[in-house]
Design a protein around this nucleic acid. Structure first.
Lengths: 220, 220
DNA sequence: GTCTATATTCAGATAGAC
DNA sequence: GTCTATCTGAATATAGAC
């Protein structure tokens, strides 16, 4: 459809895709906030100025819409966590970039993070297959890279699996728990300075724990 | 009612309290798994072998039931996080006990942790007042204790607020993300050995980061 | 593609008999 | 306290006109 050259067909198709995207975006925000069961099609439809019948023209069912949202979320999630494999020769730099990337994800895509969190907290009833097939291999690849560093004597031999768990936990919390963190920090919304304070601390802790040699720059 | 000495009244009252507790427990498990919007009164009622009308005799509405569940969850949550204030003279021991306590909470009360997580991820629409009144002061007290240690030179001057955030994130993740962590560790259910591995790593990282003097026992 | 109309099921909640 | 019956609204989903 996209490649049809008749200008009218293209226009219609573009409009269609725009609405489809709008629906996905609105659905993502609402699912992030209230979970699958807490959102109605009517609610999503009103958000994009359409009717729920119209919405069911684009997506065959609510669950299918949710799957589509989750699928997109996973794409984004995974795209932010390939830093370890990119700098396989330099643990310090790789870890720094990994932490920075995951925090950037929390900052730039909080709704994606929350949809994912909602699904995992619920035991991933709908998406366990895709998580097992796409997320777990990626995580295990990171663990493997870390373990290789340890074998090569580039890192202290800490448990790579638990280290990775700690890394997502401490970075994603800035998206998923933003409401409570705001209260603790005494501000309405988290800002760039909060994310960089978080980054400093996490990097500091991780490098102190895993590096054999003294890292290049740490707080004194 | 509880103090009435007539045996019949006591019995009835006991039965009533038992059912009320059963409802609260079942509701907690279901809310933990599917969030407020994902659970119906019918669902909860079936779980305890009662009718939903009967359930509404004990609790005036679904939201009120949810509030009661959340209130109980908060009691438990807070009871596991007063370790810092208990050992104000000894940062190392206090931090060790705090981490151990929070991990014990994740292990012993995963549903409580998940109900709380669900509520916070959703932006705490129903419970923000109680969180602001009960949780935040407790957290700020911990931050204050930590900052005092830093002033006294007992700890390095890291940001106490972000340190506390990292501490709940890295401990609660073992309850809230259990389904995904199980997949990474390649086992059906998390066991004692997984929690102690987590504890070792977290304690190791925190002590390396905040202590001025060398801690008593760390991995080499 | 979007609209009106509607089928159907299920939700939370209430009333009243026992 | 628990039951049957019922109200009311909302939810997902479908059918058919335009």
């Amino acid at each position: 459809m996209k490649k049809v050259s008749g200008s009218k067909t293209v226009k219609v198709s573009e409009a269609r895709e725009r609405l489809e995207q709008d629906i996905l975006t609105a659905a993502k925000r609402l699912f992030a906030q209230r979970g699958f069961g807490g959102v109605s099609l009517d609610h999503i439809a009103r958000e994009v100025g359409a009717s729920k019948q119209n919405l069911l023209y684009y997506f065959p069912s609510k669950e299918e819409l949710y799957r589509r949202v989750l699928h997109g979320v996973l794409d984004v999630w995974l795209s932010y966590m390939d830093a370890l494999s990119q700098r396989q020769d330099d643990p310090e730099q790789a870890l720094r970039e990994y932490i920075a990337g995951k925090l950037r994800f929390s900052r730039e895509h909080p709704d994606d993070s929350r949809v994912y969190a909602n699904e995992v907290v619920s035991g991933a009833p709908i998406f366990s297959d895709e998580i097992a097939e796409r997320v777990i291999p990626a995580l295990q690849a990171d663990v493997a890279i870390f373990n290789r560093w340890a074998e090569q004597g580039l890192c202290r031999p800490v448990d790579g699996r638990h280290l990775m768990i700690l890394l997502w936990a401490s970075t994603q919390v800035y998206a998923d728990w933003a409401s409570q963190i705001s209260l603790v920090l005494g501000k309405k919304k988290l800002g760039a300075e909060d994310f960089s304070a978080a980054e400093s601390l996490i990097v500091d802790m991780v490098l102190r724990t895993v590096l054999v040699t003294s890292p290049t720059t740490l707080t004194k």
